[in-house]
Design a protein around this nucleic acid. Structure first.
Lengths: 138, 138
DNA sequence: TTATGTTGTAACTATGATGGTTACATCGGT
DNA sequence: ACCGATGTAACCATCATAGTTACAACATAA
């Protein structure tokens, strides 16, 4: 099946690293910890910056959190990297046959249910903060 | 972002149609209601059949539900069409650097949270039955 | 038996998201 | 001016998706 992009987990990794590191984290340093290409990190950092979660200093290098780890939830990160307009987890097939009872109703009825389901997931993501996550590292 | 395949919504549409139709539903008939190619329907019907939700009669044609609409939840359908092994909604980047505190812990810690979030979503899907969905059609 | 209409699949295709990569402009401090 | 960092554009290989054509297998009716 189609899974949610690793952008999300990489973003969480990135923020965690910034949170626990005493020194400034450069993109290359983070890339080394995540084990990927620095450009991938920069792209994600750009999204986190746009979402107001981090401040990145061009030229000099390094990133810092703009909120306390306890003020950043997984949902914040999730939203930041999905960064899209709609943000609907489920896709529904388009243009079903309006001449059919089911075709006429399915979109509306199903959408309500699926949005609720997505909300439940997001509610759970909102319950975990970066601070709580970091506290579990050993 | 990457969304969950329309296979799911098409499967729900398909089952709904079978449930509300007095006559037998052929793949072509369902395809007409969903507004897609019959082969797409047959593929999904194959998954629903494998999951024990429907019985499809080869040759003669037509499909029937193997359970009452009130006994089929959206989660059943979701599981049927995702039909994969792992069934993990979230992907986590692989092989983070074990020499780093974050890299060493992120996978384990994050996985717990994400699995919980997925469970919340699935719990909500399990609360809606096909019967309840159909009852909302007008 | 043959014809008809259906299901079951294989195979091919176009599309779009993803994630890695190279390249280079720009920035800021030494 | 130099150096190392960020910010992006551009390109690419890979993969899931969903539509399509084609055809074998099947069940029933004539």
């Amino acid at each position: 099946m189609k899974q949610i992009s690793t952008r999300f987990s990489i973003a969480v990794h990135t923020l965690s690293l910034i949170a626990v590191s005493p020194q400034d984290c450069t993109g290359d340093f983070i890339a080394g910890s995540v084990n990927t290409n620095p450009v991938v990190i920069r792209r994600i950092m750009g999204m986190l910056k746009k979402a107001g979660l981090v401040d990145v200093r061009p030229g000099v290098g390094g990133a810092t959190l703009l909120k306390a780890p306890d003020e950043i939830t997984l949902l914040d990160v999730y939203r930041a990297v999905n960064a899209t307009e709609e943000n609907r987890l489920f896709r529904i097939h388009e243009k079903p046959n309006p001449a059919c009872l089911v075709g006429r109703n399915i979109e509306q009825v199903l959408q309500t249910e699926l949005r609720d389901a997505q909300s439940e997931m997001e509610r759970r993501l909102a319950q975990t903060t970066l601070g709580r996550l970091i506290a579990k590292f050993e």
